[in-house]
Design a protein around this nucleic acid. Sequence first.
RNA 1: GCCGAAGUGGCGGAAUUGGUAGACGCGCUGGAUUCAAAAUCCAGUGGUAGCAAUACCGUGCGGGUUCGAUUCCCGCCUUCGGUACCA
Length: 956
Amino acid sequence: MEYTPRDLDKKWQAFWETNGTYTVSNDNTDRPKYYILDMFPYPSGAGLHVGHPLGYIASDIFSRYKHMKGFNVLHPMGYDAFGLPAEQYAIQTGVHPADSTEQNIQRYQSQLKNIGFNYDWSRELRTSDPEFYKWTQWIFIQLFEHYYDLTTDKAAPISQLITSFEHHGNKQVTAVTTQEDTFTADQWKNMSAKEQSDILMNYRLAYRQLTFVNWCEALGTVLANDEVKDGVSERGGHPVEKRPMMQWSLRITAYAERLLTDLQTLDWSDAMKKMQGNWIGRSEGAQMFFAVEGSDQKIEIFTTRPDTIFGATYMVLAPEHDFVPTLTTANQQEAVDHYIDYVQSRSEVDRMSEKEVTGCFLGSYAINPFTNTRIPIYIGEYVLKDYGTGAIMAVPSDDDRDHVFAEKFNLDIIDVIDKSKYPGATRQDKLGTMINSDFLNGMEVPDAIEDMLQRIETQKLGKRQVNFKLRDAIYSRQRYWGEPFPIVYDPEGVPHVLPIEDLPVELPELEDFKPASGGKSPLARKQDWVNLPNGWTRETDTMPGFAGSSWYFLRYMDNHNDQAFASQEALQYWQDVDMYVGGTEHAVGHLMYSRFWHKFLFDKGLVPTKEPFRKLVNQGMIQGVVESIYLDKEKIDGRSRFVSAPIAKKETAAGKSFVSILTHVDFVRDYGSDNSYLDIAGIQEFIQWRPDFAKARFETETGYVQDGQFTAVSPGAEDVKLITHSEVGKMSKSKYNVINPDDVVERYGADCFRMYEMFLGPIEQSKPWDIQGIDGVYKFLRKFYNLFFTHDNFNVSDQEPTPEEYKILHTAIKKVSADIERLSFNTCIPAFMVATNELGKAKCNKRAILTDLVRLIAPFAPHIAEELWHQLAEKGSVHHATYPVLNEEYLKEDSIDYPISINGKKRANAQFSADATKEELEKAAIELEAIQRWLEGKTIRKVIVVPGRMVNIVVG
RNA sequence: GCCGAAGUGGCGGAAUUGGUAGACGCGCUGGAUUCAAAAUCCAGUGGUAGCAAUACCGUGCGGGUUCGAUUCCCGCCUUCGGUACCA
């Protein structure tokens, strides 16, 4: 019988939809719950590409498996629908982001449905839907109305803080805050509303502060880091500088400690936990103040190595440090201004990755509080404003960057630690004996650190402090396509939240999406929206991409609720995400923010768990191949000249220069290989696609193509092979290398596509897309299908299977169930192939074997399994059937094939009884003829026997 | 730069706890079938030497631990992801 996968795809997808096969209920008491979630996609204009479904297929297999194993499985899908690309597209084309987003979602939806996923589509959500972002705004309001109370170690209402201020001022308040000055109850009561609001901002979990943005004067807009390359805008190459702006931030740092400690409770990879841990970056040390010579100012620093203070020979401030203007002396002014200009053009990544140290002397001196010597104060780009206090004491003898800096600027280097006792110890090991350090001399480093911490505290130079690398999250964007803030300002500029009845604050309609003057959001131009009748004004910034994605997983539990973000019943039932599947690119951003929001909601008693994602699975990315051809920079006879890669290489060596012109991968034969090339048809396609090159000449090593004609240069040459340049890169519209799963599905069917993506390799590994090899999976599916047919007739036998046939089946059951449990989907496919090949050879068409095999393969190939299930006249859907159970009895072996090694090298194989003892195995192995010849003239020193595994004879 | 991951035949990969390196598939070679092709089926396929039996080499590179290392440790190289406004 011919296997026609597309017919089966359509037939059963319709069946599942009409029968509601994948609808999930919130009150199923028979089955334990299991929540498996995919990181939802941003619906880009390029459509879903073959990389997206990799994780979705894995989670689909797992959720189907879990369902067959008796769980009530929640497996939803939605769209992260707000974002910059839609807005940029709108600016370029005038298409409203809502329209392009809707269109993209429709496309994604049809592509997803085409692969036959078991999503419960009635739970679909979009972050740009007002019904959804009403609750994003609501959660923001809660953050605004809370502060972090260190006594109870959780979020508390701001009203409680106000009561406290009214009675005692802020002296006894222990909270996470940036408020430095203290005030009394009376002082508080006498403050204006604006003054009170400003103070509360230093406590709120959502607050406003001055932060820096990438400002591009020429484009009149704020740029994402992504849009800045080498200090200039990616579009147009205009200068970009850092500019301070009043922006909303979230006080994620209040949760730093809990985010770190609770990591331990999660079933995430060690790599992922490490990355999050390093991102939080907890370090213990001392906060200290250094006096400035001839000034009252004291420079606050943080150091994890107070023991090295006798080696602190200079200080470095971040170039943006508040003290820079006052500490700059007149004769250094010009140099400092010049240096700051340079730093402003640099991105943070540039600054951190610069190997060459740069800096500038301010002209002022600080006093080292322990040596009482004057030490020069510099600014340097390697000190970041946002990390620590934005100032360091530099110890060139014990810090690599300080060392390089000191050498460059000829600063003193004093060795303070003798590491001779600890060869190979790194700075992180904190080992050594103190020298040149007065009262610390002779102490071991850890003791010296403790001693210094005590002295610093008793001498009131500073105090012990825990510092985090984690920074508060900037939450404002000067954009249109995001959630509006539920915030209005009164005439004094005091922000107020809107009552819940006024939510959602919907995005107003707009026709022009360019930024407003001063880099403000386009919303600022919508005067009738911004200005309220009572003279108050709306916040015009919008929320960032991570707003909706920080809590969307809760909404799936109850996505039509208009009374709450989800009902307590739904939250109590589903609890948390049991398994979360997505890419490592979200390792720190999305996952950290989600955990933070979840913990906040937990503090409020709104969610039942401390952590949102119990288990995390990282899928690798499927990359694309980027293909380009070489264009001669000079024209020949007025024609553009493209050359084959070997020619370009040769001529480049001879001094000619070429530019790479991207070509669509569809035109390239053998793309991705070293020998990828354009043949004559490919060249025609390229010309059609880039008509500006219609007149170009395409030179290969055997001739050239011009005006559609090939002219051979070397005699007898017929083939046109214009070798292209291939490299691995992101699959994206701009690289012309997006592979649409629809095309693959159309040709091979959804089941084949699903199994092939799994067959490509381990789920967590990245690899470039390559269609080579899909034929093998297709052949397998056809063979599998034909196990059930004799010629064109469905034909299965009710005879009792033989022990061999049971063994084939149960070998597959064992391998596949074990591999699904450890998420090794790629190794399941060969198990199915082997079983199918062996059953084919045995001409087995026994119902007892095939029915179980259909159930076993159902999670992987849902369409073919459903078809055969119905052909077998089984009831209902195979996806509601139970999973086959392993019976080890069928797998028992009498004898085992042992490898016999001499000195660890395999020299022979032999069958020994499965229940042979160690002694028997040793004796039998030595007696083997193939082994005897290796023992001649040698002494047996030792025999290692691992029963069931191997025998190794050590000779000498 | 910093943090994390990966590197095995011509290609994708397998080897689950330190125990037969290369399962399975692609590709390639030869054969069967066919007027021919496609499809299908059978056999072979890491490298070197050899008619063969077999031997030696071989899991990015250099060292180490071990009876035994793709697996553990140390030092490098290359590629990929993140680096706080791409999502």
